[in-house]
């Protein structure tokens, strides 16, 4: 216990020095641009590889790590969790909030009926299917409806 009492101030001091040293170095740490250099039109099909072909042009991650392939769109939760700053260079927060919100008033597939090509969840007759899908993979329900956006759930699930 005595050793800890001696060590704690030393560790705190070391931590403080570390923080001060880090802050002094902050100006040398580069940042990604606040927004994408070129505005992309809604629905525009682009080949990101045209500019992000290799890492020599300044991208920290390999192009494959953020290329919007179909598997990327389907599994975007992984990428957003580790680097949503990169998402924010092109997408405004409202793009995410269309689906991921505390209260979703309208199914995204209804709201964007003109975009059937987007991989929206709960398309069509999901009110029947959710009784199967919820038993199959409850974790997929919980991620969006466990702690938020469950107004409609609580109406029936009493």
């Amino acid at each position: 216990m005595r050793t800890w009492k001696l060590l704690l101030p030393l560790l705190a001091l070391a931590g403080l020095i570390g923080i001060i040293a880090s802050c002094a170095q902050m100006k040398t740490v580069p940042g990604i641009p606040a927004s994408h250099p070129e505005t992309l039109a809604i629905g525009q099909q682009v080949s990101c590889a045209e500019c992000h072909e290799d890492q020599q042009k300044g991208t920290m991650k390999a192009f494959n790590a953020f290329s919007h392939t179909r598997s990327f769109v389907k599994n975007h939760r992984f990428y957003a969790a580790s680097d949503d700053r990169l998402c924010a260079t092109c997408h405004k927060s409202s793009f995410c909030a269309d689906c991921h919100t505390n209260k979703a008033e309208m199914k995204p597939s209804t709201r964007y009926g003109e975009r059937p090509d987007r991989e929206f969840q709960h398309r069509g007759n999901f009110i029947t299917l959710h009784k199967i899908e919820g038993k199959l993979d409850p974790a997929s329900c919980y991620r969006c409806h466990g702690r938020a956006n469950n107004d409609r759930c609580v109406a029936c699930h009493r």
Binding site: K27, V29, P30, G31, I32, R85
Partner: peptide, 8 residues
Amino acid sequence: RFNQANAT
């Protein structure tokens, strides 16, 4: 948003 280090 700070100019360096992606600080926000």
